[in-house]
Amino acid sequence: MRPMARVQLTKHLHTFFPALAGDELVVTASTVAEVIAEMERRAPGFAFYVCDERGRLRQHVNIFVETERIADRHALSDPVGPDARVFVMQALSGGA
């Protein structure tokens, strides 16, 4: 059985993607890249908000697996353990 991740998005993203609103989204994924791919499937356009057209995490976006910020911002290959919580947050650096 493939691991399930529990994804929490900043509410800011709920504004653009109401289909993803809610406290927690449960997805089947073993890497962060798979989490984003599943979000894109549920809400087309989502991936380009979080990543650029090369698939790299945008400069002012952070993703955490549990409390650790992901290491691979280029390919999002960080593993997601069974039942892990994944947080997609806006970075303070991007505000104005």
């Binding site: 800011h12 993203l13 653009f16 380009f48 908000y49 979080v50 650029d52 945008r58 002012h60 976006v61 806006q90 970075a91 991007g94 505000g95 104005a96």
Partner: peptide, 8 residues
């Protein structure tokens, strides 16, 4: 130009 989410 979204501060966090890029140009749209």
């Amino acid at each position: 130009g979204h501060g966090h989410w890029g140009a749209k």
